[in-house]
């Protein structure tokens, strides 16, 4: 990794440290390297964003942190260290509950045949050993914590009786029932409308302040990343192409892909201008990387980009980018701005 630590310059050991993670799906015809050498760190109490287009491997990366990669997918390399224990060595059960996940679609994260309270108490029973009325009371207080009004009544209700925003709050309450240190949010606001989205983001920020929770925020929405995260990892075709603190990244994106992503946010362009898009689609990585995977879509690609795998190089304080434009060994693009 060229000596640049993926977590930047933190003093303490990170809470979660993902190193060179490889997740491969073996299908009948090909191997798909959905996550190909991803590394990032999350420290206690911070919010780290993982942003990329659909199909870039961000959800698979999130699921592998919880050991939820289903067959035919396998974690084939790298490590996921949580508090120093490598989870990939089948340590997930030892840290169950320390990491919780909130999925994209709240209506399908809740089992429709059980009441909301029933599902929260299920987690409470496993992680806090609570049963009966004690567990119900705790479920009510969790629902109150996530801002559900009239919680004692809502706890008895079935998921279909709640609105989408309320359902997502209930899902967050369910995740909090495990009393986690790290909350993985896999596009938690994508299925919600914009006003509800803002409320959920506020709620997550409040919860983080209240309990020093670390959050891994996965989304394709750059606007959400800007609002919600401290640091950002930009993922493209299974690889992290740029990592940086949120502010500097939005001020001055260094990787051409990040730049293109930021340009395609509505509202950042001049009013009369047509909204730029990135031509083409995310390629499906079917083998080990041999070139820069973004090269075919990159406006600044040059000959070497199709022959060389770019490595992360430092492009500023606490930030790196994997682009030959920034690699002093190559001089194809010339301008690195």
């Amino acid at each position: 990794m060229n000596g640049v630590a993926p977590g930047g310059t933190h003093e303490h050991n990170p809470l979660l440290s993902v190193r060179d993670l490889e997740v491969v799906f073996h299908t009948e015809h090909e191997e798909i390297h959905a996550v190909d050498g991803v590394s990032f760190d999350i420290h206690e109490g911070e919010t780290v964003g993982l942003v990329g287009e659909s199909g870039s491997g961000k959800s698979v990366a999130a699921r592998s942190i919880l050991g939820l990669v289903d067959s035919p997918g396998h974690i084939e390399g790298g490590s996921i260290e949580f508090r120093g224990d490598d989870l990939t060595e089948d340590n997930w059960d030892a840290h169950r509950g320390d990491i919780a996940i909130v999925f994209q679609d709240p209506s399908s994260s809740l089992n429709p045949v059980y009441t909301v309270g029933n599902q929260i108490t299920e987690a409470l029973r496993i992680h806090q050993g609570l049963r009966g009325t004690e567990a119900t009371e705790e479920a009510v207080s969790l629902l109150e914590d996530v801002g559900i009004p009239d919680a004692p009544r809502r706890v008895e209700e079935y998921p279909h009786q709640l609105s989408g925003g309320m359902q997502q709050r209930a899902v967050i309450a369910m995740a909090l029932a495990c009393d986690p240190d790290l909350l993985v949010c896999d596009e938690p606001t994508t299925a919600l409308d914009v006003t509800i989205q803002a409320q959920i983001l506020d709620l997550l920020a409040d919860l983080q302040r209240a309990s020093d929770l670390a959050i891994l925020f996965i989304t394709h929405d750059m606007g959400v990343i800007e609002d919600a995260t401290d640091r950002v990892n930009v993922i493209y075709a299974g690889e992290i192409v740029e990592r940086a603190p949120t502010g500097p990244l939005f001020e001055r994106p260094e990787h051409p892909y990040t730049r293109a992503l930021l340009k395609s946010i509505p509202g950042r362009t001049e009013p009369d201008e047509r909204l730029p898009t990135i031509e083409g689609e995310v390629p499906t990585p079917t083998g080990p990387a041999e070139d820069c995977r973004f090269a075919p879509r990159c406006p600044k690609a040059f000959a070497d980009c199709e022959r060389t795998v770019p490595e992360h190089v430092s492009v500023g304080e606490d930030r790196t980018a994997a682009c030959l434009l920034h690699d002093p060994a190559y001089d194809g693009g010339g301008d690195s701005a």
Binding site: L68, R96, A100, I101, I126, A175, C178
Partner: peptide
Amino acid sequence: RQWIDAAKSFGQRPRTIMRKHMLP
């Protein structure tokens, strides 16, 4: 379904997941 993953993520035992979240 996602609630199966949710249950796995908070450490529910496979038997209970099968009985409680799949059997119905």
